[in-house]
Design a protein around this nucleic acid. Structure first.
Lengths: 183, 183
DNA sequence: GGGTACATGTAATCAGTTACATGATTTA
DNA sequence: TAAATCATGTAACTGATTACATGTACCC
């Protein structure tokens, strides 16, 4: 007789992202999740919108979410945590993780092979990366100044960390753009 | 009659990672790729080893890699770039990317929902994250001090950037661990 | 009343993950 | 010679991506 229970084996980070967002909002439609992701976490943990429709369906099947579908009009589904879903989420949130941060970045991957592409390519890639990170930095700073509704201190702290990373990235790529040989 | 050519539509970042590594080494087995990834890029762009066996096979099929299989012993396959592969890689390396960095981090995701889990959980998750990032920082610093063979300036610069991020992460999580309420 | 952006999904495909399997070397 | 670790793959499954499709509300 096992002590642990629940379907945790089949849950992915996306599952917990959905559970967490629904838990945070109390109640949410897929579209609401999409908006939240786009506005905040999306910057450091993106999910395509189709997943935000598919995943809640799965979670309902697992008994972790309840859904309430409108009978008229758009017939849209509103999700909320079941007690089992709340338990599963809490348990996951309390468990430290072994993995660190993955800095997934195609531009860094290209730079990694910069020795094969030559200074011209490196300079162009770097110049563009500067712009990309500048924009992101501006977006994060705007969010910190004018936080989205329902944002709490943890979320603001994370935005601040992300902003710090972006500002380092700007400096980094700028240096590369100025001197693509890293002389 | 199209001007562009090649199978670039079906190539993923993993494909280019493999092409780039093979190009960098001149010639490589899957195992060699695995070692390189584990030692360097793995920190910011990880790939499971099974992909490093499957992907080269696909690339051979697309005519971008050539393989040379030992007839005796381990019958291992050694890959090298074909001219088409070199062209495809160069073209990709020269093209700036729109996407920025994704800071994929399960611990940050948990912290994002920290308001739902309480200070106790947050503290424990943070304390563990400090350790994880400390170890990574140490590993990056060791690499910078004693670079792997064949590492060039670009690769060292990236390691340095990663190290800077890790040291910020240590500070960040340490602050959270000390004061999980972010008072 | 026609266009455009918002809103809400479904379907097909496939890369990536996880798990399994096993031969070759080294070490104790 | 047994154990452990290094080296080299294969197989099955499925979550994620990409593309398609359509309804609804607002605006000019």
């Amino acid at each position: 007789m096992a002590v642990r229970s629940g379907p945790e084996a089949s849950l992915t980070p996306t599952s917990y992202l959905v559970l967490g967002l629904v838990g945070h909002h109390g109640t949410a439609t897929s579209y609401a999740l999409k908006k939240t992701v786009a506005g905040t976490i999306g910057g450091f943990w993106s999910v395509p919108h189709s997943q935000l429709y598919a995943e809640p369906t799965r979670l309902v099947g697992l008994g972790l979410l309840a859904d309430d579908q409108e009978s008229g009009g758009r017939r849209r589904r509103t999700y909320s945590l079941t007690p089992a879903g709340r338990r599963e989420l809490d348990q996951w949130l309390a468990m430290p993780t072994e993995e660190g941060t993955e800095l997934r970045d195609l531009a860094l991957l290209k730079l990694y092979f910069g020795g094969q592409s030559g200074p011209g390519s490196v300079r162009r890639v770097a110049a563009h990366a500067v712009e990309v990170h500048r924009r992101r930095l501006a977006a994060y700073e705007a969010l910190v100044m004018q936080p989205p509704p329902r944002a709490d201190l943890y979320q603001l702290a994370i935005l601040a960390l992300a902003a710090r990373y972006e500002s380092e990235a700007v400096a980094f790529w700028d240096a590369v753009a100025v001197d693509p040989d890293l002389g």
